[in-house]
Simulated scan of single mutants.
Amino acid sequence: MVEQISILHPRDTAYFDEDTLNALSRDLGSSVAENILCRALEDMAERFLQIRDDYGDGNLLGLRKSVHALIPIAEQIGLLGLARVGRDVLICIDQGDAVAIAATLCRMLRCGEMAISCAEIGMDLSL
């Protein structure tokens, strides 16, 4: 039996929800909002390292905990797509589907790392 292999070229994008960012700035002031955004992005970067380690070690309990902790951080700074994909990763972990875990986890990491990289160079990622 011959199987055909498809090669995928992911084109994920990461967007900050403008309403969330505006609400942070309006409620807390632009200086505090910027500080929160920077700290959240740093926290996310550290969590991505932990997530990669947990996945590489086969530590699904630790992976679930790390992804679960990432979701509210992403929501706080308006990365709603990243939070949604994070919830998808949790579903895959709970279902024990190794292929789906790998695929959704890669998507989550691509989206998150893209947001961090673009924020570092000052790109506007709002909708």
Rank of each mutant, 00 (worst) to 15 (best):
L41G: 04
S25E: 15
G29Y: 10
E46L: 06
D19V: 00
R47D: 05
D27I: 00
D43Q: 10
E34Y: 05
R39D: 15
A40T: 11
E46P: 02
G29I: 09
E46Y: 11
E18L: 02
L37N: 08
R26M: 04
I51S: 04
S25W: 11
F48Y: 11
E46T: 12
I51E: 02
V32T: 10
F48E: 07
L37Y: 08
R52K: 15
S25L: 05
D27P: 01
D19C: 03
R52H: 12
L21E: 13
R47H: 06
A45Y: 04
A33S: 08
E18C: 02
L28A: 13
V32Y: 03
G29N: 09
Q50F: 00
S30Y: 15
R39W: 05
L28I: 12
A23L: 09
D27F: 01
D43V: 03
R52F: 11
V32I: 14
Q50L: 03
A45E: 06
A33K: 10
R47C: 00
M44L: 14
G29M: 10
S30R: 15
D19F: 02
E46R: 08
I36G: 01
L41N: 04
E18P: 01
N22A: 09
N22V: 07
E46C: 06
L21N: 14
S30E: 14
G29A: 12
S31P: 01
L49F: 12
